[in-house]
């Protein structure tokens, strides 16, 4: 099962991941990502986009 994982100390809450993948990524009241479960198989490319746009390299795709 593929998941997105946040490197929390690296995350600065810029929110770009949410812009490219809003179906799975929400932002909390402070602007940090809230991940809604594992990445569906047909959405892995979107998840990769989210990983790629993170300016602090705080997002990783793991497992699967």
């Amino acid at each position: 099962m593929t998941r997105l994982r946040v490197d929390w100390p690296a995350c600065r809450g810029r929110g770009l991941c949410q812009e490219v993948f809003p179906e799975l990524i929400d932002l909390d009241e402070w602007g940090y990502p809230v991940l809604d479960g594992p990445v569906p198989d047909d959405q892995v490319a979107r998840a990769r986009d989210a990983v790629r746009v993170c300016p602090t390299l705080a997002l990783r795709l793991v497992g699967g």
């Binding site: 929390w8 100390p9 995350c11 600065r12 809450g13 909390d28 009241e29 402070w30 602007g31 940090y32």
Partner: peptide, 11 residues
């Protein structure tokens, strides 16, 4: 809090 993770720092 070490203040390094956003949700902990704010939450």
């Amino acid at each position: 809090s070490a203040g390094r993770c956003g949700p902990c720092l704010n939450g």
